[in-house]
């Protein structure tokens, strides 16, 4: 991914910066100018908790270029607690330890790298929700 393209989406990649529609109240991620739920155009910024649950998952054995060295890795559809769903890698767990409905939380990790000398792309992945220390 080009440097400017990565830079434009940094707030989403690093901190899940989202929007709330001023008209219908739905949370929108990633942000867009027209609400996909009610087609109105006024939104406010909001922060997401980064918590959600696994809606579906797959272990990838055949990766697109840029991701070959990580195979096998697990991708998931994560349903965020605020409503939106997103596509992300799961980390700190292998495919056998994943189940639909499993609670997960967002962490920032390396996604890929543009060749040997290009930029490193960081972004969100999700890991099984850690139990709080007593």
């Amino acid at each position: 991914m080009s440097i400017p393209r990565n830079w434009r989406t940094r707030q989403q990649r690093y901190s899940l910066k989202a929007e709330v529609c001023n008209t219908c109240g739905n949370t929108i991620f990633p942000p867009r100018d027209v609400c996909p739920h009610c087609a109105e155009q006024k939104q406010s910024w909001t922060n997401l908790s980064g918590r959600g649950e696994v809606y579906s998952y797959t272990t990838m054995y055949n990766a697109p270029s840029g991701f070959e060295e990580y195979t096998p890795y697990t991708m998931a559809l994560v349903k965020l607690s605020e409503g939106p769903m997103l596509t992300a890698q799961l980390t700190d767990v292998d495919g056998n330890g994943v189940a639909i409905g499993m609670p997960v939380e967002m962490v920032t990790r390396k996604l890929t790298q543009d060749g040997d000398e290009g930029q490193i792309l960081y972004g969100y992945k999700f890991r099984p929700l850690l139990r709080q220390a007593v």
């Binding site: 989406t9 989403q12 990838m60 990766a63 991701f67």
Partner: peptide, 12 residues
């Protein structure tokens, strides 16, 4: 920007 950059393929 929100599917492919995460490492998903069409089969995925």
């Amino acid at each position: 920007e929100y599917e492919v950059s995460q490492g998903i393929s069409f089969a995925g």
